[in-house]
């Protein structure tokens, strides 16, 4: 082949303003943390609230990551996602109750083993449930948003009622495993051990998800599918299969989130997932539908803001997240890190 004409294009460097605009979503977290510090005044209270906010944010992120990818890949609005949170919590807590000797022992190894088994059981059950949900409820309504809302809300109600049938109508109280009770003190601030664990699990999951999405072929297909699904299929990939896989993984993550949230609140109800969906949707929307990184930043902002505001002005805590969503959508109507969809 002959050489192409001499053509040496270059990119111009981005201006400082453009760089700042690009980085702004990531800068929002440290900005909020600093503002929180200035508003709260007391370093120990601020540290306690920051860890609490990060823990809450990580748990919301775990629940929201699957939802945002499912929407990004196939334009599916799944209001039934909350059902996987509830089922995960009930399955996980059932395992923890069954392993009462392990959770009651003052052994970190036994406690963590019990949590690990509870999480595995919850993820397996919610993953399988997600697969069935996709095949039976979601598959017939691809491309029809109104029908998706109606049938997935219907699915949510049915699953909630099934939880009542299996586990009874009452809420279930659960004690955290022995070694995760109480708090550690650092610089005068009390930080609950369980919240620190939640931050750690959330961070590990985010890094793992990012690596899968950035470093593997399947991650590449998912990212490309979020942007332009028909083209991915035209290159020879079975996007439907990928979508089913993502749906199962997202449901399993919701189950994991359910176990973690149940242990965080120390009480579970059939409607807990439904209640969480408000926060989960806020996070997915402000992050930019389809963006895992956006959901991560959005979840941390929501968790931090809610904790700071609840401390400073408890009456405003409920509206703080709606206010955050409104402000972010006025600034970036597609969310903080929107996925540019092919037309």
């Amino acid at each position: 082949m002959t050489a192409a004409p001499d053509h040496k294009p270059t990119f111009s460097n981005l201006s400082l303003t453009e760089r700042l605009d690009e980085a702004m979503p990531m800068l929002l977290i440290p900005i909020l943390v600093v503002l929180g510090f200035l508003a709260i005044g007391s370093p120990s209270s601020w540290l306690t609230l920051t860890v609490s906010g990060l823990a809450m944010g990580m748990m919301i992120f775990i629940m929201a990551s699957g939802l945002t990818l499912v929407f990004g890949l196939m334009d599916v609005i799944n209001f039934g996602h909350g059902a996987f949170v509830s089922v995960g919590a009930f399955v996980g807590v059932s395992v923890l109750i069954a392993l009462g000797d392990w959770t009651g022992a003052a052994s970190l190894l036994l406690n963590m083993s019990a949590i690990f088994l509870a999480v595995v059981a919850a993820m397996m059950v919610t993953g399988a449930l997600g697969w069935g949900f996709e095949r039976v409820i979601v598959k017939p309504v691809y491309g029809a948003h109104l029908k998706q809302i109606l049938v997935t809300v219907g699915g949510l109600i049915v699953i909630e009622q099934l939880i009542h049938v299996v586990w009874g109508p009452d809420e279930i109280f659960i004690n955290r495993p022995e070694t995760l009770k109480g708090a550690v003190t650092f610089a005068g601030a009390a930080m609950e051990k369980y919240r620190l664990l939640a931050v750690g699990i959330g961070l590990v999951l985010f890094i793992a998800m990012r690596m899968v999405l950035r470093r593997t072929k399947i991650g590449l297909i998912v990212r490309a599918g979020v942007e332009n699904g028909p083209m991915v299929e035209a290159l020879g990939y079975r996007l439907r299969m990928v979508f089913v896989g993502v749906f199962i993984a997202g449901s399993a993550l919701a189950g994991l989130g359910g176990v973690m949230w149940g242990l965080y609140q120390e009480v579970i109800t059939a409607g807990m997932g439904e209640k969480m969906m408000v926060l989960v949707f806020i996070v997915a929307i402000i992050g930019g539908l389809g963006s895992v990184e956006g959901a991560f930043i959005g979840a941390l902002l929501v968790g931090l803001l809610q904790n700071y505001v609840a401390f400073l002005e408890p009456k405003l805590a409920l509206v703080s997240n709606i206010a955050l969503m409104t402000a972010i959508l006025m600034w970036r109507p597609q969310g903080m890190m929107p996925v540019v969809k092919a037309k």
Binding site: L220, R223, A224, E227, N228, M231, A234, V340, A342, K343
Partner: peptide, 8 residues
């Protein structure tokens, strides 16, 4: 429309 994945 070329079908390029812009974010990749």
């Amino acid at each position: 429309d070329m079908g390029i994945f812009r974010d990749l």
